[in-house]
């Protein structure tokens, strides 16, 4: 009894090791359900293959080198476009929050763009820029920029009036108010925007690679799908899932680090 209570208390904690154990537990849970599904309900191997076979397919791709080719293509595209999206998003958020007029004018448009699924523009972007890096880059930037921009602006605007008054009371200049109050207050907001943007960027890159490229995870998934190689398809999906999970954990950790007072 006490052993279970202790385990439960440990798992509820916000420590890094507890987070790790929770992640491992949920992965194990998914694997078990998956295994059971393929053993009982879904016996058609075109629809679903057991985890074991996916793992074997992954090893095959590793040995043939295909994983590295595709991984490099995807990581290069995301690695180049995502930081740009973040920087542009933050700059745009700064700009908008600095001018009431601009924010009022651009606000409705941004809200619209934020809610529109920009992946729908993929065919258009590819028609403009052709197959390959450029279209991936532009699509991911377009998709990832808005969550960052909107949360940056919200974060900068939502600063506690009381904190600003306290700074002003000490005769702080506008710049001092920005660096000591507004920006630190907005940072956790910005990071949570980046976290959302990361998930969207992964969707964006896969879609871009579906439509137009010769390498990348999305390309490999489409190719595997066309040859009914479900195991390989799922292997690449797992890799994307891992990227998403790792990114999300990292950004969450940064958020916690920046805003420890939001816990408890």
């Amino acid at each position: 009894m006490t052993f279970w209570q202790k385990t439960y208390a440990f798992l509820e904690r916000e420590t890094r090791s507890a987070t790790l154990v929770r992640v491992l537990l949920s992965i194990a849970f998914v694997l078990i359900v998956w295994e059971l599904l393929t053993a009982t309900l879904v016996t058609n191997r075109l629809l679903l293959v057991p985890p074991q076979e996916v793992f074997e397919a992954l090893m095959r791709e590793v040995r043939s080198g295909a994983v590295w080719t595709n991984g490099l293509a995807t990581c290069l595209a995301v690695g180049a476009s995502f930081p740009v999206a973040v920087l542009v998003g933050i700059a745009g958020g700064l700009l908008l929050s600095s001018s009431r007029l601009m924010s009022l004018t651009a606000g409705p448009m941004l809200t619209a763009l934020y809610s529109v699924p920009i992946v729908a523009l993929a065919p258009l972007v590819i028609a403009w820029l052709g197959l390959g890096f450029a279209s991936k880059f532009v699509l991911v930037v377009l998709i990832a920029v808005f969550p960052v921009l909107v949360t940056t602006e919200t974060g900068l605007r939502s600063t506690d009036r009381g904190l600003i008054d306290a700074a002003r009371s000490f005769n702080a200049s506008k710049w001092q108010i920005f660096t000591t109050v507004t920006l630190p207050y907005a940072l956790p907001f910005i990071v949570s925007g980046i976290r959302v943007a990361w998930a969207r960027a992964l969707v964006g890159i896969v879609v871009a690679e579906f439509f137009g490229s010769f390498a990348g995870f999305g390309f490999a998934i489409l190719a595997a799908g066309q040859t009914f190689d479900t195991a390989t398809l799922l292997a690449y999906v797992m890799l994307l899932g891992a990227m998403g999970l790792i990114g999300s954990l990292v950004f969450e950790a940064i958020e916690r680090r920046l805003a420890p007072w939001r816990q408890e």
């Binding site: 306290a166 005769n171 007072w261």
Partner: peptide, 22 residues
């Protein structure tokens, strides 16, 4: 101020020294 207007991301010593830092 009435409502506590301390900077939540700064420690006590940094908060107390805030006006001096400004």
């Amino acid at each position: 101020f009435q409502n506590d207007s301390l900077l939540p991301w700064k420690t006590v010593i940094e908060n107390v020294g805030y006006g001096l830092a400004i």
